[in-house]
Design a binder for these strands. Structure first.
Lengths: 229, 229
DNA sequence: CCGTAAATGTCGTCG
DNA sequence: CGACGACGTTTACGG
């Protein structure tokens, strides 16, 4: 990894056109050839970058700048995207061998929520039973397929954050499931830790019930953790 | 900005739990206190990070490691998220004053495309007029609401890249708008710089016209920049 | 400050 | 290789 702190201007041309006026920035060149241009603020996203696979070409100084130590880098990839970095003044330049990274170990909340709800379907209402998790359909698996106290089929879609896309997804499942005479009529429940107003409106419009789940309380125990709307 | 190349282990606990085994990585501490941990590959996303506003607390060496030069940083924010970096060996450590960045100038994003098309609705067809941009509905604003030469209402959805989601979005708007007797019947146009085959098929199936826009040509001017399908 | 949609999104998985 | 969904999404914009 090469770390270069330099006064520079940057231009990107590809999916859009972008320009950075002259200023001091960090230019990071990774072992795989990718390039990141960072400012001293903002969050983790660079001001400009080029993702691998890509190639750096160091051009000779532009004629009018000769003798001033100006260098231009052109980073390009297969898709004709082009990142042009003009270095006006080098403040720091160092190279480091980091080796390959062993990689990140994650433990998400997402799958856990489905597992918890599957283990507590009675929380949806008294007399509810689980038919199965990940119930297969032609367009993908339904998170939970249940039966309510009347024996009616209910498809449950679970998200951490409930947005319109999730309601669309559940709607597609419901349309398909309701074509099966052995299951129909199938109603829907949209369950999430948080449900956006627009998603709630759309769900309501389509006769889908919304359920806000309190993850911590559900993990703790019981039925008081759910609020039906 | 502080640049630290070090052999370290990292733990994050917050929205999820993650762990990085001991390895050499770049630790970047920005002027606003944010911290990024980068490997020598991957893309611009760090392995782990903490976004501002956040605070770094440098803890004394753990007792069992005393004398080995081990230091632990705990970065935390208001939301109780916590990034713990244990530094086992420092390979490089430098500090740089970058100053505030003048910021990025962009051109060619969806907003520009919408503005251009709003200024050239006649490009959709002769006699077309603009009713308004960002026409409000209960489920969100329609990009452009127009009337064609016959005075019929047309809803236009604009994307940089046209995918299925965009067609779904337009379909929802059309369903809602067609409930309004003052507007109905409302037809749809899906406009983008590039439209994926699946999106085109779905749009066609729903009676939505597709329009491929050449941004550069449209910016130039003229009507020859549009091709109707 | 909240809510929503865009993003040079990136990143996995699965067909 | 491309499509699809999730993301510690982040980021910009409008009420």
């Amino acid at each position: 990894m090469r770390l270069l702190v330099a006064r520079c201007t940057v231009d990107y041309q590809g999916r859009l056109t972008a320009h950075l006026p002259e200023a001091v920035r960090l230019i990071m060149v990774k072992a795989d050839g990718s390039v990141l241009v960072h400012a001293d603020g903002g969050s983790y996203k660079p001001l400009n970058w080029m993702s691998p696979p890509c190639w750096v070409e160091e051009r000779p100084s532009e004629s009018e700048r000769e003798g001033e130590g100006v260098t231009t880098w052109v980073v390009h990839n297969k898709a004709q995207e082009r990142l042009t970095i003009t270095v006006h003044e080098v403040i720091h330049d160092s190279q480091h061998d980091l080796g390959t990274d062993p990689g990140l170990v994650k433990d998400g909340v997402e799958a856990h929520l489905q597992k918890l709800l599957a283990e507590h379907v009675e929380s949806f209402g008294p007399g509810w039973t689980l038919v199965r998790r990940e119930f297969p359909t032609a367009i993908g698996p339904v998170d939970l397929l249940c039966r309510d106290a009347d024996g009616s089929t209910v498809a449950v879609e679970i998200k951490r954050r409930g947005e319109i896309d999730g309601v669309e997804q559940l709607s597609r499942y419901l349309e398909l499931l309701n074509r099966d005479p052995l299951l129909a009529p199938v109603s829907g429940v949209f369950a999430a830790q948080e449900i956006k107003p627009q998603a709630k409106t759309l769900a309501h419009d389509r006769g889908i019930r919304c359920l806000v789940v309190d993850y911590e309380e559900l993990k703790g125990t019981s039925d008081s953790s759910l609020r039906l709307f």
